[in-house]
Design a protein around this nucleic acid. Structure first.
Length: 296
DNA sequence: TCGATTTGACCATG
DNA sequence: CATGGTCAAATCGA
């Protein structure tokens, strides 16, 4: 039942995956040479930019692979077709706006099929975008209120990106940030991946960002972490990338990145593409990354 | 004074 | 009707 429709795209998939593995190995070598894989050393600037670049390549490669799997017949990399979703959004919105309201508050639609990313982190982190808080609500069965943010440039640039920040735990602190939609504002710089140690001492986390800019310190209460990690993914897929903490140092596995596995069954069964990256070696410490990519 | 945050009200959805 | 997402007036702070 599975792979028949993958036939056409399979060559591409394999090609991309192989390339990804190759790049990953390069990355591993770079990091090894830097000697910063140890917990004792922290990453120094010299290798990091190159490593970031390679890492981005890897991620894009796998992203393409996933999309090829999803759409085997396509001959191009993902690019567009936001139209349907955008249209439905717009129609609802314009419906709402054009007609009565203007004076009515709260006219909106609940989002269902927006592109989303989820991120959990214990520390607030800048994601390079400017957010404005527009609401806070007590959520059922949650001890902490949920905070609602929209892009500061919603009005001047029509940027529809929003995010919700939900505190999950007090001790140790844990926050869940959910991003909705793309940033269409032009505050961004080049697409890049940021691999950052959020907490140099103990736990460091990594967040990946495909379109990012430098942190813009604002006094906003919750500029929490974000992987505004979206690049042009289609809005109709769900892709989950789980990067669990790395293995203990003792298990100096040389093939972390080449061990990337792709859970095909989950993919086909559930409209979710799930990629498990079992062990990724980066810098000195562990990181978690959960990217939730909802495309329709 | 202006932009950001707070907070209660409003409305859609299930 | 309960819940969650958004709006906008009031308030705060630089």
């Amino acid at each position: 039942m599975e792979n028949e429709n993958l036939g056409h795209g399979r060559g591409k998939i394999i090609e991309e995956l192989l390339r990804g593995r190759d790049l990953a190995n390069q990355l591993r070598q770079v990091m090894n040479e830097g000697g910063d894989i140890d917990n004792n050393n922290n990453n120094n600037g010299s290798t990091t930019p190159f490593a970031e670049h390679l890492l981005m390549e890897v991620l894009m490669t796998f992203t393409n692979s996933l999309l090829f799997l999803k759409n085997p017949s396509t001959s191009e990399s993902f690019d567009v077709s936001d139209l349907q979703l955008t249209k439905s959004e717009d129609s609802l919105e314009s419906n709402c706006k054009s007609s009565i309201l203007k004076e009515r508050r709260g006219c909106y639609k609940r989002r269902k099929i927006l592109q989303t990313w989820e991120k959990e982190s214990e520390f607030p982190v800048e994601d390079g975008h400017q957010w404005r808080k527009y609401g806070q609500k007590k959520i059922l069965h949650n001890d902490f209120p949920r905070n609602y943010f929209r892009c500061t440039h919603k009005h001047d640039q029509g940027c529809k990106a929003t995010k919700q920040v939900q505190k999950i735990r007090e001790e140790p602190p844990l926050h869940k940030t959910t991003y909705y939609g793309h940033h269409t504002c032009k505050v961004l710089l080049n697409p890049e991946i940021i691999v950052d140690s959020l907490s140099p001492s103990d736990h460091s986390s990594m967040f990946l960002s495909f379109d990012n800019s430098f942190p813009t310190p604002t006094k906003q209460d919750c500029p929490f972490l974000s992987s505004s990690g979206k690049r042009e993914c289609k809005k109709e897929d769900n892709i989950l990338v789980n990067i669990p903490p790395p293995p203990p140092p003792s298990s100096s596995n040389n093939d972390y990145l080449s061990e990337l596995t792709f859970d095909e069954s989950s993919t086909l069964d559930s409209d979710h593409l799930v990629v498990d990256i079992p062990h990724i070696l980066y810098g000195s410490s562990g990181f978690d990354e959960v990217l939730n990519w909802t495309l329709s």
